[in-house]
Design a protein around this nucleic acid. Structure first.
Lengths: 264, 264
DNA sequence: TGAATAGTGTCTATAAGACAATATCCC
DNA sequence: GGGATATTGTCTTATAGACACTATTCA
């Protein structure tokens, strides 16, 4: 969507070209524009997000989403992908624009409008939180996969808290609790009608794993029988003929996601 | 959502305050940030959007959505509401953020990132396209309620064209065909689970009118019986006990929308 | 053999589509 | 009364939830 280009039927007139050459963008005050990425995965029945501890002011010591300022020559999608690569060492994963946050006082430095994205990563591609991309400079201790505590049901929405594995609450920077809340809300909403659960699973998975992912995202149990039926009837998944092994019980069939245009 | 404020547990330290005082936002190049509003209503089985003909470069003569640059002290929601008031003379109607468009070359002047909104207005509050708000300066001929031609089904999405009542195609400025397409896509998606159709109807309406709105938005017919049943079962609408009159046939019951927290 | 989970078959409740019959207004 | 649409009732079909039963692996 963001990459589409509108057809333009004619070239610009000489008069318009002159206008553009003389245009002075600095006549008006401009805000800063950033992107922030809620990078989410699901494990052991819990949603988690990658958080980085801020080493600099403002909000030094607080925890924030991986983000960056948008460069003049890059698109918003490119800036979000760059933030993901530089701060989490990840590329090629599901990444979608979420919402743009622009309250005048959300950043104490100056007016900073942030275009929030959310990204999903499966356990197989999950990077060690202590090993970010090459360009990252923060020490290993300053990043972690925080557990998300969603205090509301369904898609009511609202800010959510993040905590360490052991339970210690993490203070979030800026309005990043709102961004995380909206990311979970969007995730819950999309799960019903879009093939989004697969993004959190490896290429081959069992129906039980898929159901666990859905239950983790929605925060409520599912009916096993109808989940199986509707998933198999959807045509979105294909049996591979292979089975899991070493599970201490009857092994389940492994499925893979069937993309609309081909396979993964 | 956009108006929520994050709780901050402690005041900023003197050191952080000094950092903020010395922060120089002009070290980096900043883009311009605008808002554009897809103002939509439904009439005679057609979706329409308010378009303004650009009187200035760039894209002079092309048709654009009502929009404005975001001022330093106002939020994005406030900027969108201001654009709606100044360019369409409307306030207090449904207005929601849609998507942020930020391709580097989407505006030939300079880097302009636009936060797109969509708004819905019912026929009763529909302003004359020739009579915008007090602050509007464009002549009456330079604005019109254009008919939207959606070339795709369901929620596939993509740019859409706008035309005059009689059929003449209107050339759209910038990437506003994309914005309109996304607005219709969002509208179709939300209609299934959110009480959004009411925003396009006056306070009292018949079930037939409501169904017509739904069919206009979705671009496909509905089953009359199940539409009635599901609407009445939803608890979202209340019978007023009154009926329409002067219709040349048996008059239908008038209903009104029951908001979650009260009435309209 | 037993524990544990996968996978199948059947019944029931609910919601949607189809269609017929009746009700009520204006002319 | 006739035309037109509203409203109600019933039947059929598709889908989701519930539950019982069989299958298959590992210890």
């Amino acid at each position: 969507m963001a990459g589409r280009k509108t057809q333009r039927s004619g070239a610009r007139s000489p008069e318009e070209q002159q206008f553009l050459a003389e245009y002075d963008a600095s006549r008006f005050p401009h805000p800063s524009v950033a992107v922030d990425v809620a990078l989410i995965h699901a494990q052991q029945g819990q949603l988690r997000a990658l958080l980085l501890q801020r080493a600099e002011h403002p909000d030094r010591g607080r925890w924030s989403l991986p983000g960056t300022f948008v460069r003049p020559e890059e698109s918003l999608d490119q800036a979000a992908a760059r933030a993901l690569l530089e701060k989490a060492g990840l590329s090629g994963i599901f990444l979608e624009q979420l919402y743009t946050f622009g309250e005048p006082d959300r950043d104490p430095r100056t007016r900073v409008i942030t275009v929030a994205y959310y990204a999903l990563v499966d356990t197989a591609r999950l990077p060690d939180p202590g090993r970010p991309g090459k360009s990252a400079k923060a020490p290993a201790a300053a990043r972690q996969w925080a557990v998300l505590d969603v205090p509301w049901e369904g898609e009511r929405g609202g800010p959510i808290a993040a905590r360490e594995e052991e339970g210690g609450q993490l203070e979030l920077a800026f309005d990043h609790d709102e961004i995380l809340g909206l990311a979970v809300q969007r995730l819950r909403g999309k799960l019903c009608y879009a093939p989004i659960g697969f993004e959190l699973l490896p290429a081959r998975f069992t129906l039980r794993q898929l159901q666990d992912i859905h239950e983790t995202i929605l925060g409520r149990p599912h009916n096993k029988d109808s989940f199986r039926r509707s998933m198999l009837a959807s045509g979105l998944i294909v049996a591979t003929g292979k089975r899991e092994s070493d599970v201490g019980h009857r092994p389940a069939e492994l499925y893979r996601f069937k993309r609309a245009n081909g396979n993964r």
